[in-house]
Amino acid sequence: MTAEAALYIGKALCILAMVATAPAEAMVVKSAFEAIGRNPQLEASLFGKAIISIALVESTAIYALVAFFTL
């Protein structure tokens, strides 16, 4: 295996971060929607919090992206 091939395999492994982050984001959205469904008055206060927690969860994918480009 040449060094270049190893590099590309490493980059492909970085993409695998999505396997975990996509379900994680879905879980955040799911529980937020469930809470709104149970108590619709919560919508105004939950929206901002849900957006922020999604951004926090997404940051793990961003770390993988940074690793992807620094490889």
Binding site: A55, S59, I62, Y63, L65, V66, F69
Partner: peptide
């Protein structure tokens, strides 16, 4: 690390 990489990664990924 996480504070700086989160902001940097998001903006850089958008541009790219």
């Amino acid at each position: 690390l996480s504070l700086s990489l989160r902001l940097f990664g998001n903006m850089f990924a958008g541009e790219l």
